[in-house]
Design a binder for these strands. Structure first.
Length: 470
RNA sequence: GGCCCCAUCGUCUAGUGGUCCAGGACGUCGGGUUCUCAUCCCGAAAAUCGCGGGUUCGACUCCCGCUGGGGUCACCA
């Protein structure tokens, strides 16, 4: 077997890489690595209207943040450079013309108006809108019109009444009728290729062996198969992955779900947890394991085992899994490092994380681990309580009493046992629950174990927290 | 609507003709541990395997139909 080469072909039209594309990237990456092949990224920026400034860079940096490293791509080059379609324009025209020569494609001069009228007419007759091959027979006149600078596109010439099919690794044989395939535009009037031409030409030229993409492409695969056949090129292996869904089962979309990959990072999800979760979409570990590193996924994954039904992206389970990574998978050292990275712009938290007494920091982290599901939640646990304007007189009284009580502890005696004993005394004598003491000191109804946290804070800082009540 | 894909607990899934009146995980609910909240431990509810026909001695597993869901029908990808 020749070398396995897979690719993802994102278009730079959004804020970032879509989480569904990250999923596709993960599968392509894992499959390539499993077979000691190459994983390539190609930017498909052929829609000049929708193109977004900076999107390409964002997509590439997100991929890197998640550890999906590519062997060839627009910024790192490779043997088939360039890897951005707008840098390959002459190629598409050349191949489009080759198709015209072969009679597999033809020039079309139809105006937008005619196309729209045609579509409306067909819709009115309840027929699927399709181009009517109006320009198919103008081949001879075509060159003259082009010479006169008339705008044109090149369309695929689909022969009618042909039964065709292709093999999909995940779904088996998928058959179709050529009457269902429209004479798609291949080369637009601005000289850019449409997706269909671009993807086929580049996948062939870049020697892509396996096209692993989302299910939404199934219905345009017949066009691609027709193109491969017209060119006389060997067909790659096709595999159409399930589409990730919103909770209402529609295609995962930004209206109903956070979809940009970096959003998850900003929320404090760990890249490896996100990838681990994604690997469980449509696939399961042979031994039913749920927590495993990507290296193991690469070892155990097989395209054939992908379940074709579209799974709902369940952020709740992702949160659980992220929690598992935070408390069980990462070491405390690693967690500190992740937190430092995450809070690098937050002075208060960053200072805390740079505590010179690493033993204290370690014990704080051990306490914090089990109560956070994302890195972001760490701040809620340790940040200074907000200053509040109004306090109940009862709270003020309690705070004063607590201050007196805690002040009585000698600095040398400031340890968990002593503090706990005093807290218990306080709650008993004043008839208030430990919970009140908790809120007075932390400003929050729940969080880290109080005595341990107070030891970490130190006597002065702890008393200072009570000051805001008086 | 045409065409295409799909169909096991609320969700992610295991299951490849008998060992399944269906197993695990998230979530939910109850209990235990406990200085708050978690973690952790124990337990429970939760799928008549979408429905109906076949094939078979025997179907969650194979075939057909139906229903339901999804995708797609652009000079967007």
């Amino acid at each position: 077997m020749t070398q396995v080469r897979t690719r993802i072909a994102p278009s730079p039209t959004g804020d970032d890489i879509h989480i569904g594309n990250l999923y596709t990237a993960l599968i392509n990456f894992a499959f390539a690595k499993k077979h000691k092949g190459k994983f390539i990224i190609r930017i498909e920026d052929t829609d000049r209207q929708r193109i977004r400034e900076g999107a390409q860079e964002k997509i590439l940096s997100s991929l890197k943040s998640f550890g999906i490293l590519y062997d060839e791509g627009p910024d790192i080059g490779g043997p088939f450079a360039p890897y951005r379609q707008s840098d390959r324009l002459p190629l598409y025209k050349k191949y489009a013309l080759e198709l015209v020569e072969k009679g597999a494609a033809y020039y079309c001069f139809c105006t937008k108006e005619r196309l729209e009228a045609l579509r409306e007419e067909q819709m009115a007759m309840k027929k699927t809108p399709r181009y009517d091959k109006h320009c198919l027979h103008e081949v001879k006149a075509a060159k003259e019109r082009i010479a006169k600078n008339e705008a044109y596109v090149i369309r695929l010439n689909v022969l009618p009444d042909k039964k065709m099919s292709f093999q999909d690794v995940i779904r088996g044989e998928i058959s179709f009728d050529s009457n269902e395939v429209d004479d798609q535009v291949l080369l637009k009037s601005d000289g850019y290729p449409t997706y269909h031409l671009g993807v086929v030409v580049d996948d062939h030229l870049m020697e892509i062996s396996h096209i692993i993409r989302a299910e939404e492409w199934i219905s345009s695969t017949p066009k691609h198969v027709l193109l491969y056949e017209s060119f006389g090129w060997e067909l790659p292996v096709f595999a159409h992955l399930p589409i990730l869904r919103n909770p209402d089962r529609s295609k995962l979309s930004k209206r109903k779900n956070p979809v940009w990959a970096s959003w998850y990072l900003e929320q404090g999800f760990l890249p490896e947890a996100v990838l681990n979760y994604l690997s469980l979409m449509g696939w399961s570990h042979p031994e039913q394991k749920e927590i495993f590193p990507i290296s193991e996924f690469i070892k155990r994954f097989d395209l054939k085992d992908v379940h074709p039904a579209g799974p709902i992206f369940d952020i709740q389970k992702l949160e659980w899994m992220n929690g598992v990574y935070i408390r069980d998978v990462l070491t405390t050292e690693q967690l500190i490092e992740r937190l430092r990275q995450f809070y690098r712009n937050d002075e208060e938290v960053h200072a805390l994380l740079n505590d010179t007494n690493s033993k204290k920091l370690f014990s704080l982290l051990d306490l914090a681990k089990s109560r956070i599901k994302t890195l972001r939640e760490f701040k809620d646990l340790v940040a200074s309580p907000q200053k509040e304007e109004h306090f109940e007189s009862e709270q003020v009284a309690s705070a004063k009493a607590l201050t007196v009580l805690l002040s009585g502890i000698g600095s040398g005696m400031w340890n968990e046992d002593v503090i706990l004993k005093h807290l218990k005394t306080f709650s008993k004598e004043r008839g208030v629950s430990m919970r009140i003491a908790y809120i007075l000191l932390t400003g929050k109804p729940q969080g880290l174990p109080l005595p341990q946290f107070m030891v970490y804070l130190g006597k002065d800082a702890s008393l200072k927290r009570l000051e805001r009540y008086v």
